[in-house]
Nucleic acid binder design. Structure first.
Lengths: 352, 352
DNA sequence: CACTCACGTGGATACGTTTTCAAGCATCTC
DNA sequence: GAGATGCTTGAAAACGTATCCACGTGAGTG
């Protein structure tokens, strides 16, 4: 196990000062002759600058943090792949954490990132806005993906609801002033849900349920808006994030309201739970109940019938978020809303 | 954005030297009085030791690297969750990379990790053994997960085949001397495949095909061994890792050999491709073709019929690998072989 | 020719921590 | 009571890099 060459070794071998080596390697000015010599020596010694020294000197770790609720959820897998793709092309490391949707674990992981001096973070937030403002004060550049943190105080919630609707109105609409001024890359939940609800309405469905998970406030709001008042509150139910609780929620919904004829699932885990629960209760899809699921995942096509879905570009979402967080120094990052698409397959039928 | 307190600040505020602060915080000896004072001051200043300084001093980054082929593959999602769970409980960061199954990208990512002085790595290897030996020489502690790297030279390959069979013979059998002495956490592929093949045989199937992906040499070998010579080589086909190529392989297999009555898919992406291709070709599962898939993923139950699978404990695999790599300093890590389980659902029927 | 200016260069410093080392001090032993 | 022993403590060095600053050299200008 031979030890790695340091910048000092290169400097000595090339007969120059360490400062010159540093400049050559980080693109500073140097004469053509010395540049060439330094590069040759560096290559010959197989010199790789130590990120440790650099990081300490610049008082920050390169790369970025990535916080997702669950890597077992295919959508977050897609999102992560997008982030990693962007990071790879930039040659930057990404340190990842899985929060389990738990604000406490999220806070722990943020603490760990802080300790590592990771100052750029892409997060699918679980904690509320109050939990995130300290992070900003710590000097972190944060970009939210997939969703925004829930606002905590009542008046904030009101303001945010308004802001959300405004933000989603146009695809590239400028984000309104929010209590928490953090850029985000999210899907156009409002349009996606609206399209799905209209589609179901067009098939004759009247009693449409929403099966949601944690952090899907924006989708629920969109659902409420799309169905119009008055919303039958028994028809919107929530799981807590685990597959078990999603199944319980779905099963409970089907049993307590046999009159519902369609359900929109707020995410692929919820969708999975819905088809499982429906099968268990001998409800046929789409004969007895129509189903449209948020997230297009490979296995949606495998179901029989194949699932009609609201597709959101998970990979793009991750990639864009990574771009934003990397360019944060240069450009002031603006929020991005990505389009969704209703992909009609076989899980929705006419109301009978 | 107030700047963080350093150890020096704490030392001054507590009226002690920095060395004392360091000792108190890293569990060294100190008098009860000073310990208490230092702790109080540290808490009051909200002091968090910077990993940067520590890392530079110790010439190594804490935590571990994690290299998987594709986070979109649910199995690797499970494996990653296991690694993250272990890392979280140890308070260690994880820097992740997705190789896409490409040895070149893998090498790039390894280079990045080296640059970061990450000296502990959990990898699902894509490159062959020759690509990995330099990593060891660089002083990295590596633990392979899910599979072993392919050996490159012909004699090595022979030796490895023998070694693999030996290694898999007992669950906790000591790993034989291999050209590459790296501990690994893998599933008992041999037993898993053997059980599946026997099960299919028991249903009367004679022409059983194997649909494999990259890095599944161990499973193919096990398949060859289980069916016994002579193996109809047309019945073992490979995709390159992408979903498209998996689909192409599956589709090609079904079309070129309409006489096959059962197929074993070497992974969940392959299994997905198989049911898609079968449906496209109007082959009914399990009436026309029986299917058993490696990997138990949540959506296996969603298919109709639900898929019979060889379950391997992805999460455990990741957790164990992380444990091994973290304890590498203390204990000399030994390879681990985890049990598989044939979960019979509805995708296999009697041969007709 | 003297003076300025621009540029290439290297020495020195700082980043925040851990660890070594020796010194200070109190206690114990003969 | 003198020496030895043990424990606590702080000063200082080191880790590998980027950057500030000052120095020297060459060209360009008056």
């Amino acid at each position: 196990m031979e030890k790695r060459a340091t910048i000092k070794d290169v400097a000595e071998a090339a007969g120059v000062g360490v400062a010159t080596v540093s400049r050559v390697l980080s693109g500073g000015s140097a004469s053509a002759a010395t540049r060439e010599r330094v590069l040759a020596v560096a290559a010959q010694l197989d010199y790789r600058p130590s990120a440790l020294g650099r990081n300490l000197r610049q008082r920050r770790t390169g790369g970025m943090g990535l916080l997702v609720p669950d890597l077992t959820d295919t959508f977050y897998g897609q999102l992560s792949e997008g982030v990693l793709a962007c990071a790879r092309s930039a040659g930057e490391p990404v340190v990842i954490g899985s929060t389990g949707g738990d604000p406490e674990q999220e806070a722990d992981l943020i603490g760990m990132l802080l300790e590592q001096s990771v100052d750029r973070l892409i997060a699918v937030p679980s904690g509320d806005a109050d939990a995130w403002s300290p992070v900003l004060r710590a000097g972190m550049t944060v970009v939210f993906a997939d969703r925004l943190p829930l606002l905590s105080s009542p008046e904030d919630v009101r303001a945010a609801a308004v802001a959300d609707l405004m933000a989603l109105d146009g695809l590239s609409a400028a984000a309104p002033a929010r209590p928490l001024d953090i850029p985000a890359v999210v899907a156009d939940d409002r349009a996606g849900i609206r399209t799905a609800v209209r589609y179901l309405r067009g098939l004759g469905h009247k009693r449409i349920a929403f099966l949601g998970g944690p952090g899907q406030e924006s989708r629920v709001n969109a659902f409420r808006e799309a169905v119009g008042a008055p919303v039958d509150e028994e028809l919107v139910v929530f799981g807590t994030g685990s597959r078990d609780s999603a199944y319980a929620a779905a099963s409970g919904l089907f049993q307590s309201r046999p009159d519902l004829s369609a359900v929109v699932a707020g995410g692929n885990v919820l969708g999975e739970a819905a088809v499982l629960a429906a099968r268990e209760l001998d409800l046929r899809v789409p004969r007895d109940v129509s189903l449209v699921m948020y997230d297009d995942v490979p296995w949606a096509e495998l179901c029989s019938p194949p699932l009609t879905v609201i597709a959101q570009p998970g990979r793009d979402m991750g990639y864009r978020a990574a771009e934003l967080v990397l360019r944060a120094g240069t450009r002031k990052p603006r929020s991005v809303v990505l389009p969704t698409e209703l992909i009609i397959r076989g899980s929705c039928g006419p109301h009978r």
